[in-house]
Amino acid sequence: MKMHLDEKIWLIISFGMIMGFMFFTGYQTFVLGMGPPSEMETIDPQRVDETAPFDEPGVYQIGENEYEVVMTLEIFSFNPGEIEIPAGSTVHFTMTSKDVTHGVQVAGTNMNAMVMPGHVQRITQTFREPGEYLMLCNEYCGTGHQFMATTITVK
């Protein structure tokens, strides 16, 4: 098949671009540990309240400037509802849903994860700047979906 030189160059550039994207994604995921939230642990979605650690949702300090938030999601609220942490803290969220699929997103940060019934989801976020962060549900979950939100107060 006859191919013009400019076409070959274009195809090589295209191929290189796609491979470049792949390379950077792989590098970030596997070397820098910036992979997307992909927790594999499962849980019985009908017995969340009786299963540790979700039997006691809350904010726990686990180290200097390090917190764990054990959170359950149900229509149309997050539990714990209020989170307060000092600036510069790293927060490890451990979440699961008691009913339908929800999404957790904190506006103004890169924190974004799906929370599905039957699956535990973990995501870590460091809050450097003080302020009020809006945490909301970004997966349609029912009539009150637009009210499913809370704030994270960083002092």
Partner: peptide, 18 residues
Amino acid sequence: LGSPRRTSYTTYFDNATA
């Protein structure tokens, strides 16, 4: 900026970001 899809009009209780 963080506005979610598939959500009807809401200010999230007059949240400044929203």
